Computed example of a mutant assay.
Amino acid sequence: MDEAKNEEGCLDRWKPAVAMVLVQISTTGMILLSKVVISDGMFIFSLLTYRSLFGALFILPFALFFESGAWKKLERNSLCWISINAFLGYAVPMGLYYYGLHDTTSSYSVIFLNLIPIATYILALIFRMETLGLCSLPGNMKIVGTLGCFGGTLLVSLYKGRVLHLWHAIIRKHQVKTEPSHVNQLHASLLLAGSCFTFACWYLLQSKVLKVYPYKYWSSMLTCLLGGLQTGVVAIILKRDEKSWHLGWDLQLLTVIYSVKRLTVLSV
C-alpha cells in the first residue's frame, strides 16, 4: 500500500512537468507545419479561425462529459472575462505570431517562445502576484530558470549553422523562404516580441478566469469558440475572397487537425 501511494505521489509530482514537455513538443510541430502552409499562401486568419472552431468542437464532448452542468453556471461576468481571455490569449498573440512567422523562419520564431516565461515572471512581480524570494529555493529556481530562458534565446538567435531539410520528400513542393531580408526580420521580430508579451498577459489572466469560472473544459471550449469568432470577423474584414477559406485534403487540413490536438493538450 505504501509503495502504491509513493508511486501515485511521484506521478502527481511529475505530471505538470510531463504536461509542459508535451506542450512544447506539440508547439514545435505546430510551428513547423504552420510555417509551411503560410508560406504556401494560406490566409493566416482563416487558419486561425479553422483551428479555433475545430478545437471548440473537439473539446465540447469532454466538457459535456466531465463538467455536464457547468454551462448553467455561466454568467455574464464570466463570459466577459472568457471573451477577454480569448482576445488576449488567442486572437491577438496568434495573429501577431503567425504574421511574424511568415516573415522569418520557424527556427528563429520558435526561440521567442522562451521569452514568455521571462515576461510572465516580470509582470507577475510588477503586479505582486509573485515574490522575488532571493532567500528561498523556489525563488532562486525561478531566477535561474528565467536567466536560462534568456540565455538560451540569446544563444540560439546568435548561432548560425547549417540549414536542415527534414522530411524534404513530403514538403518539397511547398517553397518556404528560409532567408528573409533584414527589414522583414526586424518587422517579424517586433511582431513575435509583441506576441510573447501578450501571451505573458494571458497567463496572468488565467488566474482571474479560473476564479470567476473554475471549469477548465467549458472555459477552454468557450475560449476557442470566441477566439474563432473574433479571428473570423477580422478575416472577413481583411479578405472577402472565397478562395482564402478553401480547405482541401492536403497539408493545410493536417495543420488544422494538428493544431486542434495541441489545443486539446493545453486544455487537459
Rank of each mutant, 00 (worst) to 15 (best):
D2A: 06
R13S: 13
M20V: 12
L22K: 00
I31R: 01
K35F: 03
F43D: 10
L47E: 04
L48K: 02
T49E: 07
S52C: 09
A56I: 06
L64F: 07
L64P: 02
E67L: 11
W71R: 15
L74P: 10
L74E: 04
L74C: 09
E75I: 05
L88G: 05
V92K: 04
Y99V: 01
G100H: 02
D103V: 04
T104E: 03
I111E: 15
F112D: 10
P117K: 12
A119W: 00
R128L: 08
E130F: 04
S136G: 07
V144F: 14
V144T: 15
G145M: 04
C149H: 09
G152P: 11
T153Q: 05
L158G: 01
L164F: 14
H165S: 07
L166Y: 03
W167F: 14
H168W: 12
I171H: 11
R172W: 15
H174D: 04
E179T: 15
H182E: 13
H182C: 12
Q185S: 15
S189M: 08
L190K: 03
F199T: 01
S207L: 13
Y215T: 01
Y215W: 10
W218H: 01
S220A: 15
C224N: 15
L226E: 04
Q230K: 06
T231M: 04
A235K: 05
A235D: 03
L238E: 14
K239C: 13
R240M: 12
R240D: 12
K243E: 14
L247N: 08
L251A: 08
V260A: 02
L263Q: 04
L266V: 06
L266G: 03
V268F: 12
